[in-house]
């Protein structure tokens, strides 16, 4: 199971905890994780990425294994530790605004 960490405001919107566990088909990528996340929590559509283009919202970042994957292609495979559920895939509100 993929461990996805949601930022506070999206936890509130989804009515979830900090971590949601998702079954994600291989290959595990940003896109496949977000597809699974939005299928489980339809109210999150549009809050992480554009509903039409799939582009990441400007002030949202994706972290995993102490690396920033935000600028990677949404179809790049994510690290094996994320696939194995040993590391979290973190959706983060960018540090902005002081």
């Amino acid at each position: 199971m993929i461990q996805v960490v949601l930022p506070y405001h999206l936890q509130r919107l989804a009515g979830s905890g900090r971590i949601v566990e998702l079954e994600v088909a291989s290959p595990v990528t940003q896109r496949s994780i977000l597809d699974a996340l939005e299928a489980r929590y339809p109210m999150l559509r549009g809050t992480v990425r554009n509903q039409k283009t799939g582009d990441r919202n400007a002030y949202v970042r994706f972290f995993a294994c102490n690396e920033d994957y935000s600028l990677n292609s949404p179809d790049d495979p994510l690290p094996e530790a994320v696939v194995q559920g040993k590391e979290e895939f973190m959706i983060v509100g960018a540090m902005a605004g002081g």
């Binding site: 405001h9 919107l13 559509r45 549009g46």
Partner: peptide, 27 residues
């Protein structure tokens, strides 16, 4: 709405006691 997380539309049928997120696709 949020600069981080975009637009959400909420709807209530009990005068604001409970709310439900509805569609936010403004294409």
């Amino acid at each position: 709405t949020s600069d981080w997380f975009g637009q959400v539309i909420q709807r209530s049928d009990d005068g604001g006691t409970t709310w439900e997120a509805v569609n936010n696709d403004f294409s």
